[in-house]
């Protein structure tokens, strides 16, 4: 009987070990993290949408966007233990004209708790000078300058009655020298960590304000077109990027 008992114990132990192992595996399932960029207009954070007339709070000029898109790349998530998960090939075009493109999905993030997200606005210099790329970096996307190699990192176009020919076009880019546009930003989630665990929802909500492009720029009546890397491209993009803020996370 004793012998039987010990056999039972051994079997139970083995069974427990196996099932608990299984449980651990389930807990360790990687999941997707979505970074959502919500677009607002001005410091009052009013509604921003294409093809509707907006008044710029600082310039006082009316403008109707027909295009608004920008690159986000090189996404990394910082875990509680200080280590990073770096998404391979992370290049996104956030395009106000393409629904869903404001959600950058990072697949297969290892399960765990994350405290920060780090990302680059624009495209790194390596990919600006490494020849033909694919995906979001495909030159057929219309965001690669043919005559002056490098990506247009922010593109804002539209109509403005005060502009010289009634329209505006800002193609902001430049990946080297003092006027390089791409910049890396890091955002801390505060007291609540982002939990990644299998199919569980994990969303990071960011707020971007295209009105900030003109935070330090002249009125459209004076300057309505800038389509090459230069100091203005640098200052407009910097003003826009600096005002992108972390809003909240969804766990």
């Amino acid at each position: 009987m004793k012998f039987l008992n010990s056999i039972l114990i051994v079997f139970t132990l083995i069974f427990l070990t196996f099932t608990s192992c299984k449980k651990d595996e389930e807990q360790a399932k990687p999941g997707n993290v979505t970074i959502e960029f919500d677009h607002v207009w001005g410091s009052t954070e009013g509604e921003f949408s294409l093809n509707s007339e907006l008044t710029h709070p600082m310039l006082g000029e009316k403008m109707t966007f027909t295009t608004f898109k920008y690159y986000v790349s090189n996404v990394r998530l910082k875990a509680k233990d200080g280590s990073y998960y770096t998404m391979p090939e992370s290049y996104f075009i956030v395009d106000a004209d393409v629904s869903g493109s404001n959600k950058a999905v990072i697949p297969n993030v290892p399960a765990g708790e994350y405290t920060d997200v780090e990302l680059m606005f624009g495209v790194d210099s390596t990919r600006c000078s490494s020849g033909a790329q694919t995906g979001a970096l495909d030159p057929a996307k219309g965001l690669f300058w043919s005559w002056n190699s490098g990506y247009i990192m922010v593109k804002a176009e539209g109509k403005a009655p005060t502009a010289a020919d009634g329209s505006f076009a800002f193609h902001l880019g430049g990946f080297k020298g003092v006027n390089k546009v791409q910049t890396t930003k890091s955002y801390n989630f505060g007291s609540t960590a982002l939990v990644v665990d299998g199919d569980r929802e994990a969303e990071i909500h960011m707020v971007a304000n295209p009105a900030r492009l003109w935070h330090g720029a002249e009125k459209l009546a004076v300057k309505s077109v800038n389509t090459m890397p230069n100091a203005l491209a640098k200052s407009m993009s910097t003003n826009f990027y600096d005002a992108v803020r972390f809003d909240h996370i969804h766990n």
Partner: peptide, 15 residues
Amino acid sequence: GINHIEVMPLAPITN
């Protein structure tokens, strides 16, 4: 202005 042989043809094709 063009920094790589692979992206060179983009200019004449789209010009």
